[in-house]
């Protein structure tokens, strides 16, 4: 899949983080992204847009990242959707929980553009 074909959904409650991720994505060549501030909003956007990659935070109000991933994975149409989690939570149990919920990769904040690029390339 080419960079132009990738429609990325960024899910993070912090507007600062959403802009950092969006900006970094643009710098590394991924120009198409939309964003949501929590899992609930993200589910709506996912249903309304042709999203083929998701980057989500964990700690969010309303519906957190883990609940969001679990919800997404419960739907058959999203079984193969690549989901990457970018979060401050770096405990072993956290990572294992995220894997169990269905994330395909996991980055602990702060991340570098190089790390982000490498992980995305691995998943597409």
């Amino acid at each position: 899949m080419s960079q132009e074909d990738l429609n990325i959904l960024i899910v993070d409650d912090s507007p600062t983080m959403r802009r950092i991720i969006k900006n970094t994505l643009e710098r590394i060549g991924y120009k198409n992204s939309i964003d949501a501030s929590n899992g609930k909003e993200a589910i709506d956007l996912l249903e309304e847009n042709p999203i083929n990659f998701v980057i989500t935070d964990w700690n969010m109000p309303e519906m957190n990242g883990l609940e969001f991933v679990t919800e997404v994975r419960s739907k058959s149409e999203y079984q193969d959707l690549p989901i990457m989690m970018i979060t401050t939570r770096g405990m072993k149990d956290d990572v294992l929980q995220a894997v169990q919920a269905g994330v395909n990769n996991y980055i602990v904040k702060p991340f570098t553009p190089e790390t982000l690029e490498e992980k995305i390339n691995k998943l597409i």
């Binding site: 983080m17 900006n23 970094t24 700690n59 702060p110 991340f111 570098t112 553009p113």
Partner: peptide
């Protein structure tokens, strides 16, 4: 400038 932007992640981390 991109590095400055990336460094602003500190805010989210410190906030948490």
């Amino acid at each position: 400038a991109s590095s400055i932007m990336n460094a602003l992640q500190f805010h989210d981390i410190v906030s948490q």
